[in-house]
Structure formats: structure tokens, C-alpha cells
Nucleic acid binder design. Sequence first.
DNA 1: AGGTGCGGGTGGT
DNA 2: ACCACCCGCACCT
Length: 496
Amino acid sequence: MVLNVNIVNAPVPLPIPSPPATKSRIQIDWDINDTKMPTVSEFDDFNDWANGHCRLIYTALNDDARKHASGWAMRNTNNHNVNILKKSCLGVLLCSAKCKLPNGASVHLRPAICDKARRKQQGKQCPNRNCTGRLEIQSCRGHCGYPVTHFWRKDGNGIYFQAKGTHDHPKPEAKGSTEARRLLAGGRRVRSLAVMLARDAALSDKLSSLKTNKRQAKTQLNQQETKRKRTEVMPINQQDLSGLYQNNNLNSQQSNYIATPATANQWNNNTETYYNQDGFTCYNSTNNLYGYEMLHSPLSSTSTSSASYYQEILPQSQQMQPTQQQQQQPTPTHYEPMNSTTNYQTTGMTLYESCDDTSSLTSSSGYSSEDYSYFNNYVNSTADVTAAGTQSATQSGDNFFTTSSEIFSVFESTINNSADAANMDLLYSEATAYQQPQQAYISPSYQQEHHQSGDFYYSNTGVDNVWNIQMDSSTLYHHQQQQQQQHHPTSTNVYC
DNA sequence: AGGTGCGGGTGGT
DNA sequence: ACCACCCGCACCT
């Protein structure tokens, strides 16, 4: 499918950001490497699926934050800095045959963090019983060709989280799912992957839900406590609550800072910052517009935070397209290491990624061998930078867009009861959530319009900000282009 | 068995 | 100097 939509005069309403899952986080200009970390009076809710350049500040009482948890498969990376824990993304395990279910859903397993275990994963037969493919890793190259990195830093009562890069691959399955399957099935190829994964996903979802409820309760308590103590918050108590970090003296003097829209800044001083009605700050600039918008996974019960994400908009020429990649993409036999200058041209990297810290991107030292060897289906050294070439190499379209409306039909042959069917929904709606990055910015009128046309369903239950979405992927693309073009019809810059 | 964090080390820029 | 990455180790679940 080639998109060639005339969007100049398209009567598309201005995208209106959907309300954040929680009330807007304060926007503070800080960096993980700052000498002084800002002191805040409120903390972010934990976000398992932080994506895009973002910074979050968690309370040191948050267990997930203390564990440096993430939905993404993040491995520890030695940055020789005992104060800052750095992790890099391992990507996702996909089927080499790209076995697709009728609804377009794909296998998206979680890479093992342990190198040895990950090597064992690769090359294994696809767990889909009807598929002869092999599992292979799609490396994360969401940070200008390098894996997305997460940084964690404990300071005072806060745990500071900063992410760099936007994942260019589907979400792996939830961590709990992998663990549950390992325990239940011993990693063997189960007779019914569908039911197995679904049950795991259901278990994970249940755990996640419970965890979320616990978090919410904690958050409410914390917020109540915060409100009560608001006048006495600064300076914060600097006792080390967790002892996670060996050295807390680096920032022995924290800056007292309560951010308000009047005082908040974005990282890039050359950009414009706007606040919507909810105080949700989005990155928006007339000069730096590349990237897709940060996704709040509407169907993920754990994606509730809404802090300081950039809103980065794809120009028309860099739209991803949903269907043609698999059919057209050759299978290169090698992977060519790239540098920061040529990477997006030669490999179709995430063109729209904002790499503000280019100094971190200069390394050309090798990936692990497995990363190379299992990346070949997604790298084409001759890929052009046309819309088709871009999407094919960067977003692996079929992995990014599935049609959730067909979820129940996917495993009909293996679904024996309604509970399994519901579990299917849990599993694949999770993947679909990531794969539809624009949905949070579809205006109400737009929703209504396409609801009537029968190809788009979008609703918010109003309870815990749970979004229910079903849509036709072609429609999604069409409107992504319209919206983005309306926002920035002449944008051509790439900063990476 | 695998996840996690630490830290020495290597090679590239 | 900084970065990405490899590897081994210890500890934990």
C-alpha cells in the first residue's frame, strides 16, 4: 500500500491529546547527568512501557522503580558510573517466518536478559505450532541506530528515570508472561501457543492489575500525604531510603524546585512548549518534528504515567505503511554496522528519532554477534528513504499494526471457551496498543466520524482511563498522515 | 535457570 | 573522555 494522500486541505480537526492517564506531571528541566537533581513535590506513577525521550521521577518507595523494572527487555549496560544505572534495550524475539495470524498479530516474545539464555532462545523453533519459522531477535535501534537506553538514578527521596530513544520494534511480551511460561511449560513448544500465551498474559495482566491497584492506593496515599506536607516538602528529606546506590553524595545539595508551567522548560531550548488543558506538556516545535508521538499504551494497565514526553510528529515523507514490508523486503545476508551519519539511510533507522545526545551515538563498536545475525530481515543496506523504504526498514509494519478487531478469530481453532478468548484479547491488545502510536491524539470528532464508517472504534470507559480501540490499520495510516501533515506540512528536518 | 547489578576490560570516536 | 559492548562474577528469586 502506498500512501499518497492529499492532505493540504483535508478537513481533519486538530488532534487533541487525550487526557493523560493520571494528572499531568510537573515539567522540570533536568538531565540524569546533572549535578543537582530537582526536588519535586509529586512523583510520577510508574510506567512499565516508557517510550520516547522522557524523564520520570518516582518515589523511592515505589518497588518497581527500586527494581528498575521495565516492560521492555532491558539489560544492564556498564557505564562506569556507580551513581547512574544504565540499561539498553534488547529488542524483541520475533518469528523468522513472520508467521502471521489472520488478524496480523505476530509472535513477539521477550528476549532473555541473560546473554546465555538469549543465545539459547535464538534459532529455536517458533512456538506457533503451525509455523516452521525460527525465533530471532529484532534488535532495538530506536536511539539513532543504537538501542534505546534507560537511565536510573537514586537521589534523595526520588528515583530519577530518563529514557533516550523510541523503540522501533513491538513490545515484547510482559515480563511476567515469560516467567510464568518458563515455570509452567519449561520452555518447550507447547501444543497450543495461543492458549499458553494467553493464559500467561492473563496471569501477567492479573498481576499487573493487582500491582497497579496497589500502586494507585499507594499513590493516593502518597498524594494525600504530599498535599498534607506540601508546604514542608522543600527541601526534601535526603535520607537514603533504599540504599540502592552506593554513592548519594554526588548531589548532596539538591535544587529546590516546584515546577509550574511558568517555570518548566523542555530539554531543547530551541523548541516550543505548550501545555494543554490538563497541563500535559508535549514536545512541539516548528523545527524539530521528527518522530512519532509518544504512546500511552491505552490498553496497558500499567502505562499510566504521562510525564514529559516529546510529541514528535512524522512528516509525510516518513510515514510508515502497514502492509508492504513483508512482501517486498528481501532478506539480506549481512548486517552492515552503521554510523550516526548514514544509519538511517542505509538501514532505515528511525528517522524521526531525536538524538539530543549525539555524543552518545558515536560508538561503532559491535553489537553482539547474535544481534547481527538475527537482524537480517529488518535491515536492508540498499533501502531508500522513500516512504516505503523508511517504513519497511524501521517499523516492520506488520508488527506495528495489527487489527485488534480480529483478535477473537485468530486462535479460533484453539480457543475452547470464552475465557481463552478473553485471554487472547488481553495478549494481543497489549501488542496492538504499542502498534498504534497515534491513537491518543485522535480527536473526538474524528472518532465519531470513523465510528460511523465502521472502520474505527475508539472509546474510553472513563474508568482508570482505559481505552478501547479497534480500528482498521489503513484508516489509521491515512489519518496519521492527515493529522501529522496538518500539524507540520512542510517539515523536513532530521536531527539525529 | 534466569534476572540483576557491578566492574574490569576492549575498541571506536 | 566518552561511548557501546563483552564478559565474568556475585547475589538473588
